[in-house]
Design a protein around this nucleic acid. Structure first.
Lengths: 188, 188
DNA sequence: CTGAATTTTCAGAAATTTCTGAAATTACTG
DNA sequence: CAGTAATTTCAGAAATTTCTGAAAATTCAG
């Protein structure tokens, strides 16, 4: 590996981290390298920087493309493919969330729905289905929230984050008002 | 594997999914099985249900314990250890979030902070640091939100989720009011 | 204590994943 | 087109992870 020490540390960390997610070390390293590079890089530059085989880089870039995490660029008068990570880190976050949902959450949801359609054949299965229902409900709540929030522009999303749990104070206030309204009408 | 078909499907799915996260197939299967079982199970019951070796189950249970995802139970007059998943799925979600943060986010944050302390040795490193700052800032926003929200009780958390992006409408209203206030005082 | 029941450990076997080099394919230039 | 540059494919090598069986350790009843 042939990189300035600071960049090397970052790249190595992402390589290790990658294996905790579903991606392999090389893919993690390639992405880290593209992320901190000012200019787009071509495959051979990545080979030199990381010291892995050309074919490994080719496969890694292909995987990053299936994740939509990498942008293919061309330099006029140059036949090679160049790659970058998007500039906007919020966009990267959105892509990551979307792809992970597609790969992890959606298949789980359809599995749950399928199993919940089945007629339970025993008390054990009936109990299991009640647990699957709880899981299905939780995931639906989370994905509904996500589907709603992901449409926000970045400024509003950041706002929503900075507000955090304070949101619930507004809700409490609303609840109190509603409850007072009910009391006036004599409904508990 | 010796399980009712519905439960077997669920267990197998979780086994596969497990490998997409940092856990292995057996650990995923054990957890799925405990999750859908009405009663606590002992290691040998898990061995029979999943058809894996006793030692593998022992290691899997130990890993689940380090994740705090599993509760050890004792039955009076029985020397064996019995295990369950917590009843409350929201609690499971909280534990999962906390442990994943501990293992994935926290080490990344300290790596970033360490690298941001270093004096850049070149223009490349200086650019890289600017990218690390963006990443650090994003992760801090997300973890601050998480640290705030995780303290909410389940009812309020569910409220917050169901509100979703509507929160920002309240914020917009607030902003309009503030901006009118400013105009009255003649400050843009 | 003794000994049986239970759990854990761990060396190495088995399975899986990652990576490479060579060959094939594709894409472009002149 | 012919030729070359660039990329992809893929069989098998290398590395890593997972799993097992046997042995060791622990726990507890009598």
């Amino acid at each position: 590996m042939n990189l300035p020490p600071l960049i090397q540390s970052f790249v190595l960390h992402f390589g290790e981290m990658g294996s905790r997610w579903g991606i392999n070390r090389t893919v993690g390293q390639i992405y880290a390298l593209l992320y901190v590079s000012a200019e787009p890089l071509c495959a051979d530059q990545i080979v030199d920087a990381l010291g892995v085989s050309r074919s490994n880089v080719s496969m890694g870039l292909r995987e990053l493309q299936t994740w939509n995490l990498v942008v293919l660029r061309h330099i006029p008068g140059d036949r090679r493919d160049f790659f970058t990570a998007p500039d906007d880190i919020w966009q990267i976050l959105r892509t990551l969330a979307e792809e992970r949902k597609k790969r992890e959450v959606d298949p789980t949801l359809s599995m749950l729905r399928e199993l919940l359609m089945q007629q339970p054949g025993s008390a054990e299965e009936r109990f299991a289905q009640s647990r699957l229902m709880e899981m299905n409900g939780l995931i639906e709540q989370l994905t509904n929230w996500y589907d709603d929030v992901k449409r926000l522009d970045t400024e509003r999303l950041a706002m929503l984050l900075s507000l955090g749990s304070k949101v619930t104070k507004l809700l409490d206030a609303k609840d109190r008002i509603v409850s007072i309204g009910r009391k006036r009408k004599g409904q508990t």
